[in-house]
Structure formats: C-alpha cells, structure tokens
C-alpha cells in the first residue's frame, strides 16, 4: 500500500522506443505538497517519465501511482487529479488568453468558467493581454497562461516539463515565484529541469536522471555534499609559464591544456585552498591573462557522481 502522504510513487519503471532504452528501472517517491525536481541533461528520459506519469505513455515494465491511482489501470482517475504543462507551452495560438482558459474550464466542467478565467488572468498578470490572440504573446506570457490553464479544475499534482526553458532571466524569476506559490497552496509540483540552480532554488527533493537511470537523489543540501566545489581556470600568454605553474601546483588535481594554454585546478572551494593557490601564483611571477572561478556545472555533477560510483 502507498502511504497517504505520498503523491507520486514510481517502482522499477522501464520504457524503450524500439531498440533504444530510455528508462532503465527508475524508482522514486514524491511527498504530497512538496516540489520534486527531476534533474538531467537532454535525452536523459525526463520527458518520457513525465509522459508516463501523466498517462500519455504506457511503461513497458514497472508501475507508477499518482495520488494513489495506478497510471495504467486507473488512468481516468489519474487524469482527474493532475495537470500537465508540457515542454512547449501547449496553448491555442489562435484563441485569446481568455478563450484558452474558458475552453479548458469547460472541458473540466467547471461552473462559473468566466469568473475563474478572470481570476486566473489577474493572478498571472495577463489581464491586459486577455483578449489578444496568444500568437502575439511573449514566451513568458505563454508560460504563465499555460500554467493558469493547468490550475483550472484544482489539480492535486502538477507536472511541469522544463518550465523555464527558453525564458529570459526576468521571466524565469517570475516563474520561480509562481511555482513556489503553487506549493504554498498545497499542490504537489513535479518538474524537470536541466539546471542545477533551478532545482536548488525550487525543489524539496531532487533526483538526478542520467541516461535513463537515477544516479542520485536527496535534498539539495544532501546532493551538494556529493558535488565537487568547482574549479579555477587560468589562462597564460606563455607556454613556459603554464608549465611552471603546473609544476608548482602539483599537490592539486590539475588539468593542463597546452593548445589553449589553460590550466584547470580542482579545489574544495575553501578559502584556505584559495589563499594558498593565490599565494603560490604571486610568488611564481608569471603572466596570467585570465583568472576564472567556475561553479560546478551539471556536467561536473554527473562526472563526479559517476566517477565515484565507478571508483567503488
């Protein structure tokens, strides 16, 4: 039995398209009223997972439950509990924003469709554009309308497939605020993202999906402990300088690239290490053209997690 505080539970889910295995036995649970992020690069299987959970695709093996209902056997009940906001804003371009909301409201058989549409238009800052065709909307407005449409019919679980992909930074921040507000109103949010920062900002729990497998799961803080702390990148004008600094910092894990005269130094991110490296650079009296500190990227995370696993 699924405990009642679980909104989504996934067990041994597998899916292939022809010969391509997209999901290779994935498991996870999402707590009711929380934000869960499925983090992974393009092609990891994020959209496939969302499509299975929102009853658009059938898994080959394994099972999944949403709000206690089985996505295969009880798909109609699942559809009554959820809303899906796909990767590309699934809005009707020719209709106006208001008409889009009214259409979804009628399909959900709500009473007071016009009033609810008006409320959502106001809540998502779309009143001025309400009676314009959606084809004239900006990317951010489309996303907001898309989400407003998803909220009609009070779903208990909302699926957001890469909700901020293609948005400008300002719209992205607005979207983050909206998503946090959804959680405050008690809705369970399941989102996918390619950005570590986004998962970090929004999610209570994160699962990292790579090549159809969940390689790590936990809270943002838990995952960060597993991460490398980024690296320092130095660029030199002279190859000799590059070589001598490389020798000087032999205690550190470094990567020397002669072609672009760049030295990458992996650090633990502590001030102590930084000061030590800077001091050594100062005494070396070399000509450094560029100094950059890089935060860990999603790629670093995968590499680090995968290399740790292989090391075991």
């Amino acid at each position: 039995m699924v405990p009642t505080d679980t909104a989504i539970s996934v067990n041994g889910l597998e899916k292939s398209f022809k010969d391509l295995k997209v999901l290779k036995k994935i498991d996870f649970k999402v707590k009711k009223g929380s934000i869960f992020a499925l983090l992974g690069p393009n092609g990891a299987g994020k959209t496939t997972t969302i499509k299975i959970l929102s009853t658009l695709l059938k898994p080959d093996k394994g099972n999944a439950r949403v709000s206690g209902f089985d996505v295969i056997i009880q798909s109609d009940q699942v559809r009554g509990e959820i809303s899906l906001t796909g990767q590309y804003a699934a809005v009707d371009e020719i209709l106006t924003g208001r008409e889009n909301l009214q259409m979804i409201g009628k399909l959900r058989h709500l009473s007071d469709v016009n009033k609810k549409a008006e409320e959502l238009l106001a809540r998502f800052d779309l009143l001025d554009a309400a009676d314009r065709p959606v084809s004239t909307y900006s990317g951010g407005m489309r996303r907001r309308l898309d989400l407003a449409m998803s909220l009609l019919g009070s779903p208990s679980v909302i699926f957001l497939d890469e909700p901020t992909t293609g948005l400008d930074p300002q719209s992205r921040l607005t979207m983050w605020e909206i998503i946090k507000n959804l959680k405050d109103s008690g809705i369970t949010v399941f989102l996918t993202t390619q950005h570590l920062e986004e998962a970090d900002q929004l999610a209570d729990r994160i699962a990292i999906l790579n090549d159809g497998k969940i390689v790590a799961k936990g809270s943002a803080a838990e995952l960060k402990k597993m991460l490398p702390h980024g690296h320092i990148e130095l660029k030199f004008s002279d190859e000799k300088d590059l070589q001598s600094v490389g020798n000087l910092l032999a205690d550190y894990e470094t990567n020397l690239n002669k072609e672009i005269r760049t030295l990458v130094i992996v650090t633990d991110g502590s001030i102590k290490q930084m000061t030590d490296i800077l001091k050594q650079l100062e005494t070396a009296e070399v000509d450094i053209t560029e100094f950059t500190q890089k935060p860990p990227t999603l790629e670093d995370v995968f590499l680090s997690i995968i290399s740790k696993k292989e090391g075991k």
Binding site: T55, L56, Q87, A89, L107
Partner: peptide
C-alpha cells in the same frame, strides 16, 4: 505538433 493534444489527453475527457 503544438502539444495541445497532449494537454487534452492528460485531462479527464
């Protein structure tokens, strides 16, 4: 193409 069918198909209709 535009994904609106996906939206309809994830609704209880």
């Amino acid at each position: 193409q535009q994904g609106i069918f996906d939206r309809f198909h994830s609704m209880p209709i």
